[in-house]
Design a protein around this nucleic acid. Structure first.
Length: 278
DNA sequence: ACGCCCGCCTGTAAGC
DNA sequence: TGCTTACAGGCGGGCG
């Protein structure tokens, strides 16, 4: 579910809401959520009693830095959600972890499909404990890469643009929705080979990537028809209203009035305008 | 190095 | 009204 804009929205919310707070208790009711630890207690014991000092993001990963030096890494998978609660609200059926703060209030981790997870590690052990984090590609906002460097990265590979954009080892944070929106904005087809782009096309792709993600963050991410994504306070994002191609099969292209098509790439749904994207 | 398929899960919507 | 199937934002692994 959540891609970079949704995770960044959560990061900003968490920064305001939980940084500086001390964790009183941690309740793990869904052990699958902490599956990287041998037991849920391993997780609980390293988190209880600690204060949250900082919230970072890398790609789609959230990192809550504790004053002990440990880091709680959160990956939301397809359906993970972090929700701020006062404590008395009904607990959603799929709540797996509840963090209660000493001054009251809770942070709840909810995840129906259980692809997401939480785990504690240290900055030194992070790459060993979480190899996929060590292999993450550049973050569009955390790393400063010029369009020329970006172009060299594209030229050095020979893959379909959509496959590369959603490859977390190439660029971290872009998933199925934003890849389609970025490619539409850049006027490039999903199946263009990454080594075939002119310098003008590289610039367009680079710009589209930054602009689409920036705008999506500004609008608090995308909440799709299934209502899966909500921010820390349970509020929906509004970028879905700006989608130009995603979930618009058969509808008119806003630029050329042609018909938006749907395809499969790497087993994932892909939406595009066959006239505007070349 | 890449494309393609599967598995991991539950919920929802479409299809019969 | 059921029951069955396909599909959904994620990722990793295996195979050819």
């Amino acid at each position: 579910m959540p891609e970079l804009p949704e995770v960044e929205t959560l990061r900003r919310d968490l920064e305001k809401e939980v940084v500086g707070k001390k964790i009183k208790t941690v309740d793990v009711t869904g052990e699958r959520a902490t599956r990287r630890h041998e037991t849920a207690d391993d997780f609980v014991n390293r988190v209880e009693g600690k204060k949250i000092s900082e919230i970072r993001r890398r790609g789609k990963y959230l990192m809550m830095v504790l004053d002990s030096g440990d880091v709680v890494v959160v990956h939301l998978g397809m359906s993970g959600q972090l929700l701020r609660a006062k404590g008395k609200e009904d607990v959603d059926k799929h709540t797996h972890v509840v963090i209660t703060f000493t001054q009251g209030g809770q942070l709840r981790y909810i995840d129906p499909r259980t692809f997401g997870e939480l785990f504690v590690t240290t900055p030194d052990n992070m790459d060993k404990d979480v190899p996929e984090l060590a292999h993450l590609g550049i973050d569009p906002f955390e790393d400063t890469v010029s369009w020329v460097q970006f172009g060299q990265m594209l030229q050095s590979r020979k893959a379909k643009l959509k496959s590369l954009l959603t490859d977390q080892e190439f660029i971290a944070g872009i998933g199925n929705i934003y890849a389609d929106e970025i490619l539409y904005e850049a006027g490039l087809r999903w199946d263009r080979s990454s080594d075939s782009l002119t310098s003008q096309e590289i610039r367009r792709l680079y710009r589209a990537m930054t602009e689409v993600l920036q705008e999506a963050i500004k609008r608090g991410g995308s909440t799709l028809a299934d209502g899966g994504y909500k921010d820390l306070f349970g509020e929906e994002g509004s970028y879905q209203g700006e989608h130009k191609v995603y979930d618009r099969e058969g509808e008119a292209c806003l630029r050329c009035r042609g018909v938006i098509e749907k395809m499969k790439n790497d087993g994932r749904t892909t939406y595009f305008c066959p006239d505007c994207q070349v």
